[in-house]
Each structure stands twice: as structure tokens, then as C-alpha cells.
Amino acid sequence: MESKEEIRSARRLQRRNRTPEQIAAAGEALARHGVSWAKDVSGGSPATFTVYLGVAFEPPTLPLIEALHQEGHRILLPVCEPGRTMSWVEWTPETTFVRSSYAPIDEPEGERLTSAVAGADAAGIFMPATAVDGDGNRIGQGGGYYDRFLQGLKDSAQRPRTIAVTYDDDVLPSGAIPAEAFDQPVTEVLTPSGIVRLGR
């Protein structure tokens, strides 16, 4: 079995082969399917969702963020903090971004909420992934931020639904990704082709 780092490197290399047109089309499709998922999660009512800003060759999520906002949902975006923890900032169309001091991502400027508050408020969590296998094992960017965030919500009375965001070919067969004790598996994946529900 390949290591997580080997899989992560291979998926990143594959992503670099996409054209700007393919990336833009993926963003539109992710927004369409993501809004549908959010409607199911929220029962059609306005709700809070945590999302992230996909950059470079990641699946583009800005169209999803904008579409969720247009549907009346509240959007929280992550900010990396020391100790591989996260805080959250509410997104609006006027939100500005700066480069993170701790991770290779752009982060929103604004009042920060703790992960505990964000987790309690959120109906659903859209989370980054470079790959997910059929067992729900997920490879993120390597920092462990989301695994720690989800671990902190594990004992919550009402844990938000989670969905990983990937390209279609980032969904791998069962057993492809080595699982570690601290990993937080997912049961759903948002891809440009639609929602993939895994067998857990």
C-alpha cells in the first residue's frame, strides 16, 4: 500500500494537469451539488456551514461559497492558529483575504470564532481532501487541522454532517488509504459529478 504522502503527491501532480476551463467547470458543478447537499442537511432553511477556500489546483470552492450565501446560509471559513488548531471567520462578499502564517492557504480577515463555537453553530462541514477511499479514509493537506477539529466535535450532542470535497478521480477504491488512529473518516464526498456516499 502506498503511504499517505505518496498518494498526496500523486494526486497533486494529477491536479496540475487540469486546464483553467476544466477547473472552472468543476467549480460550477461543485457549487450546484453542494447547494443541494446543504439543502438536504438544513431541511431547506438557512443554516451555518463551514467551508474553505480552494486555491491553486485544489477543487475551486469560491462558487460554492457564493452560491451558499445566495441561498441565505451563513458561511464560516477557517483560519489556521498555532498548535494546528483553527478559528473561523464569517464570510461575506466584502471579505478580504491574506496569506496564512501557518499553512499554504489564503485566509479571511475578520472577527475570529473558536472551533468550539463554529462546530456548535454548523449544520454541515465542507472539508478539503486530496483523496478519499471507499472506506471513508481521507487524506488532507498534511497538517491535521481538520482531524483535530472533528476530534473536538466527536462527543458533541449534535455533530454536524461532514463532506469532503474532491475531484472525481480523487475518490479511490476501498483500502487504498492507510488509516491512522487520529484520522476522522467521512461518509460523503462532494465531486463535480455529484455526491458520493460511502459504505460506512
Rank of each mutant, 00 (worst) to 15 (best):
M1T: 09
E5H: 02
E6Q: 12
I7E: 00
R12S: 01
L13G: 09
R18F: 11
A24W: 01
A24L: 08
A25P: 09
A26V: 04
L30H: 06
A31S: 09
A31C: 10
R32I: 07
R32A: 09
V35I: 12
S36W: 12
W37G: 06
V41H: 06
V41C: 15
G43A: 10
S45V: 13
S45W: 15
A47M: 10
A47L: 05
T48V: 14
T50P: 03
Y52D: 02
V55S: 04
V55A: 04
E58V: 01
L62F: 12
L64T: 11
L64A: 07
I65Q: 08
H69M: 10
H69L: 13
H69G: 15
Q70G: 15
E71T: 09
H73G: 03
H73E: 02
R74K: 09
C80M: 11
P82K: 00
P82D: 04
P82I: 05
G83I: 06
R84K: 10
T85L: 07
W88H: 06
E90G: 00
E90N: 01
P93I: 13
P93D: 12
T96H: 13
S100R: 03
I105Y: 01
P108V: 05
E109Q: 13
R112N: 10
T114Q: 03
T114V: 10
A118H: 02
A118G: 04
D121Y: 10
A122T: 05
A122E: 02
A123R: 11
A123W: 03
G124D: 06
I125T: 03
I125F: 09
A129H: 06
V132E: 06
V132L: 04
D135T: 13
N137L: 08
R138L: 07
I139V: 00
I139K: 01
Q141I: 03
G142W: 00
G143T: 01
G143F: 02
G144P: 04
F149L: 14
Q151D: 14
Q151K: 12
G152R: 05
L153H: 05
L153V: 04
K154V: 14
D155Y: 14
S156P: 02
S156T: 11
Q158D: 15
R161P: 00
R161S: 14
I163Q: 04
T166M: 01
D168Q: 09
D170F: 11
V171P: 12
L172I: 13
S174Q: 11
A176G: 09
P178Y: 08
E180S: 11
F182A: 08
D183K: 00
D183I: 05
Q184C: 13
T187N: 10
E188P: 06
E188Y: 06
S193V: 04
L198F: 14
G199N: 15
R200T: 15
